[in-house]
Design a protein around this nucleic acid. Sequence first.
DNA 1: AACGTTGTCGTCAACGCTGACATTCACTCG
DNA 2: CGAGTGAATGTCAGCGTTGACGACAACGTT
Lengths: 331, 331
Amino acid sequence: MPVTMRDVAQKADVSIKTVSRVVNDQGEVANETRERVSAAIEELGYRPSKLARALVTQRTDTLGLIVSDITNPFFSEFSCGMLDASQAQGYDVFLCNSGARVKPEIRALRSLADHNVDGIILFPSWLNEDKLRAFVERHRPVVVVNRAFEEHPGMGQVLMDARGGAKLAVDHLVSKGHTAIGMLAGYATYPDVFQRVCGFRETVVAHGLPLKDEWIIAVTPVIEQGRQAALQLLTQHPQVTAVFAYNDLLAVGAIQACRELERRVPDDCAIVGFDNVQLAALITPPLTTVHVDKYELGWQAVTLLVRMLDDPEAELPPVCLDVELVIRESA
Amino acid sequence: MPVTMRDVAQKADVSIKTVSRVVNDQGEVANETRERVSAAIEELGYRPSKLARALVTQRTDTLGLIVSDITNPFFSEFSCGMLDASQAQGYDVFLCNSGARVKPEIRALRSLADHNVDGIILFPSWLNEDKLRAFVERHRPVVVVNRAFEEHPGMGQVLMDARGGAKLAVDHLVSKGHTAIGMLAGYATYPDVFQRVCGFRETVVAHGLPLKDEWIIAVTPVIEQGRQAALQLLTQHPQVTAVFAYNDLLAVGAIQACRELERRVPDDCAIVGFDNVQLAALITPPLTTVHVDKYELGWQAVTLLVRMLDDPEAELPPVCLDVELVIRESA
DNA sequence: AACGTTGTCGTCAACGCTGACATTCACTCG
DNA sequence: CGAGTGAATGTCAGCGTTGACGACAACGTT
């Protein structure tokens, strides 16, 4: 039913191969012929079948993107940058939600491989390093965002300076006179929690302040969990006057907790978040947080992936984005 | 490099066709043979190429989704439902951002068609009805969300009861004693603005209240525009004591405007939004708004699309989701 | 003994396209 | 003037799979 190269060839009275040549404008085609073919293409409304082409070239012009939760503004802004960059490079993208679980991630990976995507972006990956490497072995290239690992051919990484961000946050808290600082952390199984907690610990110690393990609470990074954890932290350890949160969602939960405990923010308890999602500027009080350019992160991931595609041999170093502190009213 | 049916056939010492038969478990294969082939598949880690299969069956097991802006929580929640439903049905999905503009939408449509997606979901469509119909003619089926149009074979529609939602909002405002109600509307070119404005006008009139065109302001539905429009509305027409917003983003802008004008919400100015995005519950004061189950909307869109795929001849009626008022503190 | 029938499996072309390798023809040059 | 050159185009196989059809045993049935 759809018009094929054969139809065009017939109409322009040339061989199929010649049509192929003008479509991909490769090889030498006489001007007169080229125009005749172009006219036929135009007239028939011919569009080359990416499917058929992919079968022979092994290139589908598609990328796969796996995120934990597209509903989370952090990921959706990232996806937006990723999508725009892909489009600019001529790729279409398959989107999958992993729900931050291993099984669905594997299923998504498999399913992307089945569709022969040219490359995959994982944000982040919940697989252990061996499994991940095993997959990449058969389906390079893959770019992993926000999770550091040993460099390996076929795997690229895009990171943000999480440790530096944590330092920025704690420094700011300290400069405001806080000496008892707690942290609402994500679970250590979260691929990018480690860096943020590390940065937190280092900086607290560097300032010569007390560092108590009970002041660091690990929870799932969603608002409600943040509320509960902050409630717990602030009632059990009333001396804590400042909280650094793993992400803005937890920070929002902490603000809610403070409201319930009738602790004024930032006077009775200062709060700093991480990520600077849209929401951060809109709540009351507006959240002081570490800004990350999520759109840019997505764009960079594609840039790196495409570079790996262009030169499969190259060993590209990790890309790391800077972060900056956005001071609003919560600290 | 990747293992193909031929490899499996060789290993199991059968013909390629037999392998095909067990893979798709169709046709009669002796148990003994089936097991031998299955073993070979397992051992070799064979996975059928969707590409090659698609070339002959004309089915790619992929769907296309075009949304205005994945960054908007309204669309991202929808996408989540759409993604989950697709996955449940065995489809992978191409995601495209149209940026709420015609050109990119057309480009996305074309590019999806080039990849031979089995069906497309448009949320919403910015094309005029003729163009849309022309496209669908060649690439059915398509499901359009949140935009009503004349029924047409190959086009499905999924809607929400926008008019009813507007009525709910206005009724509530009236019940609170408001008699001068303004509206922050989206541009009439927005596909789903019409219904909401219509419902607004009808209900205001039904209550015997004044309906002034100057009290209805059309803007791009983002926070900042909402703020400016509300500023304008409330200073030029101070008698207005209640505002119904086309969506929550505009409502949030209105709340900001009230704060600047030192009008207390809801005492000096009541505000009702539409959509009930996550943000609505988190701002101060929490927003009274019309709730729409966006996840369900996405799920329904896929359900409809798949039904159209299964029976191309069937004339499926539009699906319409109910809405409900969520009363919080802004009205 | 000749004839369906049924179950199992294979052959072959085709899907729409590209890459490797002809082929043709005009033209140049020693 | 024959060989060599290069531009323009064509032929053919093959990418990995499926559908239409055919082959061939094994088994009753008359």
